Amino acid sequence: MDWYTGDSAYDTVLAVAFAFAAFVLVGGLFTQSPYGRFATARLGFNLPPKLGWWLMEIPATVVFAVFYLGGPQRFEPVPLVLAAIWLLHYGNRGWFFPLSIRQVPGKRGSFNISVLAMGMFVTAMHGYLNGAFFGHDYRDQYDTDWFTDPRFLVGVVIYLCGFTLLVRSESIVRNLRDKTDPGSARSTEYRIPYGFGFRYVTSPAYLGELIAWAGFALLSWSLAGVVIFLITAGNLVPRAFATHRWYRERFADYPAERKALIPYVI
């Protein structure tokens, strides 16, 4: 099967997306995205994390909606279900997650403007590739038989497992900070998270994100899904190892049996 759809604009953006994924995969071997515990002001100023995350994720919702609703297949059953899965993910990632961040009062911004610029580029590209693909069904693969296709069924299970791990892990980290006493040491210092995925790895949220996008690529059976999985891996895999080292250096009592990203492996 040819990789292209026949739509010149779409295929051009898809080719650019794969080139960018290669850039991220290589770049991630040498440096970490400057946000959170790895924040830096050397690449421009930093924003508060709530604002930075929200602005970065907005294009995934807005651009997706524009191109999905502009497609002739937008009201067909399979594209509607795929769009619902998309909205589930970005309802959490683009809206709930930024608004639920417990930012320490008076603490400097930790979301670098360079991350915002690159992130908005990725989410806009991501939104276009999937919104247009679902709304137009370029490959004529999304008839109702897709609901019983093993790729869709297995992909949905994988996606939901990853999404559950992601959301639960983020909840555990969020609740490490004391919202009742924002000035206390409990609210301002990093602490070791425990429970659920943290029993096995340092970054279960990253693992959940990777599993979710792998499932999404399978259930949608699209190169757009493959692209976002590669970009996510290029960003999160090196960051998971850096985070693992950071915790081990900072906490003498850090659980020795805990791996960085994959339980019992690495």
Rank of each mutant, 00 (worst) to 15 (best):
A214S: 15
R248M: 12
V26I: 14
P150Q: 05
V265I: 15
T243C: 04
G127E: 07
I231M: 12
P204E: 10
V201W: 03
T164D: 07
A217W: 04
L116D: 07
Q103V: 14
G52K: 06
L223P: 01
Q32M: 13
S110P: 00
A205I: 02
G6P: 07
A214Y: 05
A240L: 08
W86R: 06
A214N: 01
E209N: 11
F216I: 09
P150F: 03
A9T: 14
P255C: 11
T61D: 07
L129R: 06
K259H: 11
S8V: 13
V63S: 07
A185I: 10
M125V: 08
Y128C: 12
L129D: 03
R248H: 10
Y10K: 11
L153Q: 13
L87P: 01
L25Q: 10
G135A: 05
W53G: 01
R245G: 05
W54N: 06
F133A: 14
T144Y: 01
I172L: 13
G109I: 05
G91R: 08
G36D: 02
A117P: 00
R245M: 07
K259L: 04
T164S: 12
F147L: 10
A83M: 13
L218E: 04
G119F: 00
A233M: 10
L82H: 14
Y68D: 09
A84T: 13
L87A: 15
L218M: 15
N46H: 02
I231W: 09
F251M: 10
N130S: 12
L88E: 11
G106Q: 12
T61E: 08
G162D: 06
A224L: 09
N130T: 12
W221P: 01
Q141S: 10
L80W: 03
G94V: 06
S184Y: 02
P238V: 09
S100C: 00
Y254T: 10
I231V: 15
L219H: 09
M1F: 11
G195F: 09
Y190K: 05
V156K: 04
V122Q: 04
L80G: 00
F38I: 02
G135H: 10
L99W: 12
R102L: 07
Y128V: 11
I113G: 00
F121Q: 01
Q73I: 01
D145N: 12
A205D: 14
G195N: 03
L55F: 11
L87T: 10
Y35K: 04
T144R: 06
Y194S: 13
A9G: 06
G195L: 11
N235W: 02
V122G: 00
A242N: 08
L43V: 01
T61F: 10
A117V: 14
R248F: 05
I266R: 07
E209A: 13
V226D: 03
V157W: 04
S114G: 07
T164I: 12
T180G: 08
L51K: 06
W213F: 14
